[in-house]
């Protein structure tokens, strides 16, 4: 299945409010430890990195290993402190890359 993501991004928040990002991305996260029915090893194919930039700052940088489930789910939170772009980026060991962007508008508390 081609790389595709479901993301839930906050679009508006008050300054100082804690907001959540939820992500789900289609990827087999093939561990490289399994064999097929002919006994041949199925080569590893995983997402290796996820990052989140918010208003020009790298706030999350995550390394993924084969112990992460297929179709990886990730949720995290941050404090909305200024308006800016949110950029989510997944990178895989086959050179694949997926980027999702959104804008967060932050109003004074």
């Amino acid at each position: 299945m081609t790389l595709s993501a479901r993301v839930r991004l906050p679009q508006q928040a008050r300054s100082g409010e804690v907001v959540e990002i939820r992500t789900l991305v289609s990827h087999p996260m093939e561990t490289g430890f399994r064999v097929d029915s002919f006994g041949r090893r199925i080569p590893r194919r995983i997402l290796t990195r996820f990052s989140c930039r918010y208003a020009e700052r790298l706030i999350i940088d995550m390394e993924l290993r084969p112990g992460i489930s297929a179709n990886p789910y990730l949720a995290f939170r941050f404090v909305a402190d200024r308006s800016g772009e949110i950029e989510l980026r997944w990178q895989g060991d086959q050179g694949e890359e997926l980027v999702e962007r959104g804008h967060l508008e932050v109003t004074p508390a």
């Binding site: 561990t31 993924l64 112990g67 992460i68 489930s69 789910y73 990730l74």
Partner: peptide, 28 residues
């Protein structure tokens, strides 16, 4: 870390403000 997995290192989550040191995921 999942010590009994074929690869015990599961994931590393680097975090910088204003992100909170917290994440939820699904593991094997």
């Amino acid at each position: 870390f999942m010590p009994r997995n074929p690869e015990p290192w599961g994931t590393s989550f680097q975090v910088a403000p204003p992100a909170l040191a917290e994440f939820s995921t699904r593991i094997r």
